[in-house]
């Protein structure tokens, strides 16, 4: 436990966390900068490949696209940032195709940032007049108030395509099933592991966890972002190797009956 009247500049209890954090940061930053000029091939992510088709479908059917980042996140959550990156790409397409984009959210800050993101996309596409700020709206901070509001939009507007990308909680299946009942094509993705199972059952495409974070590199083709995804993969290999070594270590300890070392626990 942390002493009440601590005076030291450095908390020695957090040394393992500090070491791990610094190693991770160095690897990610080094790889990102060292490889930022290289070409990378990112494996095909079906959900992201379907983004263009989903917007195209909505345009053909003369129906809107609905995009919502879920109730569970706020702007400081990396998943929300990743979701806004995908929003930017979707808005690029809706601007060009002149397709209405509706973005209900539970958080006023997310609303403000999303308005900026969508406005920027419409400006970039050369159609600032097609941007409708009222469609990027705050609906309610309450979980089921938000779910009811989005459900209402789904049933009244009958969007042809629905994007459920961000942090979702219990509202996930309510939204996904309502989207399914209006025959919308649905692309979902979340970092909430429990909600993934609901999305997999009810949606056409589901981005699983880290795929949401890889989306901005995948969609934008930005080499620095792609390099950081490569760094992520290197970290994953290192963690897998660490787990493997720890498993072998503890198995050998158990077999030989030696005193547990637990050096990997922190």
């Amino acid at each position: 436990m942390v002493p009440l009247a601590a005076t030291g500049w450095f908390d020695t209890d957090s040394l393992p966390t500090l070491v791990t954090s610094i190693i991770s940061i160095i690897i990610v930053l080094y790889v990102t900068y060292a490889l930022r000029k290289r070409e990378f091939k990112v494996r095909r992510i079906a959900g992201l490949a379907a983004v263009d088709d989903a917007v195209g479908r909505a345009t053909e059917m003369a129906r809107p696209v609905l995009y919502t980042p879920g109730w569970g996140g706020d702007i400081q959550r990396p998943t929300t940032i990743a979701s806004l990156n995908i929003l930017s790409h979707v808005a690029d397409k809706t601007a060009v195709y002149d397709c209405r984009l509706v973005f209900p959210t539970h958080d006023p800050v997310i609303m403000a940032v999303a308005q900026e993101v969508v406005h920027e996309s419409y400006m970039k596409a050369g159609y600032p007049d097609r941007y409708r700020p009222a469609d990027i709206a705050y609906v309610s901070s309450s979980q089921f108030g938000y779910a009811a509001a989005v459900d209402g939009l789904l049933t009244r507007l009958k969007p042809a395509s629905v994007f459920l990308l961000g942090t979702f909680e219990a509202e996930s299946l309510i939204l996904a099933e309502t989207g399914n009942s209006i025959n919308a094509i649905q692309v979902a993705g979340t970092d909430s592991t429990i909600q993934l199972s609901f999305f997999i059952v009810a949606c056409d495409y589901t981005l699983i966890g880290e795929e949401v974070f890889a989306a901005s590199g995948y969609l934008s083709g930005n080499k620095s972002i792609l390099a950081s995804i490569r760094a992520q993969d290197i970290m994953k290999v290192l963690i897998a190797a660490f787990i493997l070594v720890a498993v072998v270590w503890v198995s050998v300890e158990n077999l030989t009956g030696s005193t547990p070392d637990n050096w990997w626990v922190f």
């Binding site: 990610v28 760094a231 992520q232």
Partner: peptide
């Protein structure tokens, strides 16, 4: 683990201005 690493890289990208 994948989400944790994704969060780490996204946060760093935001902090250093890539994202």
């Amino acid at each position: 683990i994948g989400i944790g690493l994704g969060s780490l890289t996204t946060s760093l990208r935001v902090m250093v201005g890539i994202e």
